[in-house]
Each structure stands twice: as C-alpha cells, then as structure tokens.
C-alpha cells in the first residue's frame, strides 16, 4: 500500500470511529459535526470529479448543491402540507422518503449541470470560471425571487425525511446514511478515475491537442464529467438540507461554491480523500477558531493563502508526498 492509501484508510476509519465514540459518550453535537464533514466531503467529492480529474475550475458548484437542497425542501414541504406539486397533466405529490428525494436531487442537479456545462464548456480557462460563477449567481437570485418557496427566507421542514428501516432522527443513524453515501461516491470516483473514461479525461486535461489527435473529443468527456460532478454535489445538497431541516438561497451563493473548492485545496486537489480531509479541517477550524473569535474567516483566509502559495499539495500532499496523484 502507498502512503496515501494507508492515510485514506486511516481517514475513513477515523471519520467512522469518531461519531461512534461520540454516540457512546452521548455527545450528539459531535455526531452532527461528523455528519457535516461526511456531507460536505461528499459535495467536495462531486466537485473533485470536475476539478481534479477534468481540470474544470468550476466556481458555480453551489448551484448544484442548492438544487439538491431545494429538491429536498420542495418535495418535503409539499408532503408536509399535503398539497401536490402539480395536478396537471399528471399528479405529482411531495414525499418524505429520502431515497426518492435523492433520486430527484441527482436528476435535477445532473440536468442543471448538463445545461450549464454545455454552455460553459464552449469556453475554457478564465472564461469558464467566470461563466460557472455567473450561472450560479443566476440561480441564487432566482431562488431569492421565487416567493412560492420561501424566497429569501428559505424553506423549513419540521421533521427529517425518512429512510426505510432506519430512524433518521437519531443522529448516529443519519450519520451512517451520510457516511455510506460518501464511501459509495468515493468508490465511484476512484473507479471512474481508473476507467477508460477517466484516463481519456485525464489525457484531455493534460494535453488536449494530443488527446484530440487520437480521436478523443474533450468537450464530450468534460460534459459527462461535469454532469456527474454536479449530480454528486446535488445529492450532498439534499443531505445537507436534510441535516439542517432547512434550505435557503445561501446554499446557492458564490461563497458556498468557494467553500466547496476550499475543501479540495485544504485536503489536496485530485486526491481521492482530499475533499473529506479538507471538509474535516474546515469544520474543525470553524469549531475551534469560531469559539474564541467571531472573525475566524480571517484565519481561514490566511491559512488558505499560505497553502496556495507554499504548500500546493494540501494536507494529503504534506502527508503522502507531492507527486502521487490517484489518477
């Protein structure tokens, strides 16, 4: 096993054992923190497919995170008010079932990613960054002005959605759900990176011209990667909204996009577990620094600046060495 693989095993074990310890010690807040790490890590795993594997610097992933959140909010709010979403041409009712909500969140964010990607990928580089950011902002303003679903105030749901055979209101059970989904997504991402698709995508990222001469069409590969990436981040959004039992336009804001990207950098870009490590560090910093200073974002900013300028491999880069990339 490489050092990175050992470290990954350690991270996945620690993320599982910590909430189990908290459960045993009766510290539900700690379980919630671990759940937050798992969910935000999942959002980062999504972005990592576009950014790490595809080299697509998307600054608009909050759009998919928020769409996932609103998929949850809209379905659950209709279910709790017993008002169908629509009656014509066919009846669609709300639901409080997590699996159905997840599927809707995956599909809705995949469709949004396909549309945004199809337009944004016509360009590259700095244009791509600005365009993804702009489309994200478009959805943010749309959510604010969409008064039917809470507008600026967002949507609250009273009871967390259900999963067959589990009590999702129990923090540890909800954590297990989030953890399993995170592990499935990481497994999927690692398989994707090693598949023919992943290798071709990697080639298209490194030398687009060479990839094109052997018959690879970067646009198509990148669009597929962007769509998958958006879908996973959307799923994380649905879980995050469920964790808070609340969804608001903040989930769609550009700061959210920036933060998801920060997870990747703190952990290490294009590393399989980079987003998880980054999300964990982010949450820990938020808890520790947030305790003795209301202005902890300054420290985060300085730390981020130092990492970007001087430690480009992120935390996994420091632990496992610079050059090892999982792709």
């Amino acid at each position: 096993m490489t050092r990175e693989a050992t470290f990954n095993g350690f991270v996945s074990l620690a993320l599982l054992l910590f909430p189990l310890w908290a459960w045993w010690a009766d510290e539900p807040f700690m379980i919630t923190l671990a759940t937050k790490v798992a969910i935000l890590g999942l959002a980062g795993v999504g972005l990592n497919i576009a950014l790490g594997l595809g080299g697509l610097v998307s600054l608009g992933h909050a759009a998919f995170f928020g769409i996932g959140g609103y998929a949850m909010g809209i379905l659950a709010s209709h279910a709790q008010s017993y008002a169908p979403l629509m009656e014509w041409p066919f009846l669609i009712e709300g639901t409080k079932s997590m699996p159905i909500i997840w599927i809707v969140a995956l599909i809705a964010s995949a469709v949004a990613a396909l549309l945004i990607g199809a337009l944004s990928l016509r360009t590259s580089g700095v244009y791509f960054i600005m365009i993804t950011l702009a489309f994200g902002q478009m959805l943010y303003y749309f959510a604010i002005s969409w008064s039917a679903y809470g507008g600026e105030d967002g949507l609250s749901i009273y009871v967390r959605n259900g999963f067959p055979g589990m009590n999702t209101l129990d923090p540890i059970q909800f954590f297990i759900i989030a953890y399993v989904l995170l592990m499935i997504a990481i497994l999927f991402a690692s398989r994707l990176a090693r598949s023919a698709f992943g290798l071709a995508l990697n080639a298209a990222r490194q030398t687009p011209v060479r990839a094109e001469t052997v018959g690879i069409v970067p646009y198509r590969l990148q669009l597929v990667a962007f769509t998958l990436s958006g879908a996973i981040t959307g799923l994380a959004g649905a879980l995050f909204a469920d964790l808070n039992r609340f969804v608001s336009p903040t989930m769609l804001s550009w700061q959210t996009s920036g933060e998801i990207m920060v997870f990747l950098i703190l952990g290490g870009t294009a590393r399989l577990f980079g987003p998880v490590v980054g999300a964990a560090v982010f949450i820990i910093l938020e808890e520790i620094l947030g305790d003795f200073s209301d202005y902890w974002h300054i420290h985060l900013g300085v730390l981020l600046l130092l990492i970007v300028l001087f430690a480009r491999g992120g935390i996994i880069g420091l632990v496992a060495g610079e050059e090892k990339r999982h792709a």
Binding site: G301, V302, L304, R312
Partner: peptide, 12 residues
C-alpha cells in the same frame, strides 16, 4: 491557484 488565493483575500 489564482482563484483560491484571491478568494482567500476576500475572506481576509
């Protein structure tokens, strides 16, 4: 890197 460093500057 430019995006991240300037994002860090925004936070600061």
């Amino acid at each position: 890197d430019q995006v991240l460093a300037t994002f860090a500057l925004i936070l600061i």
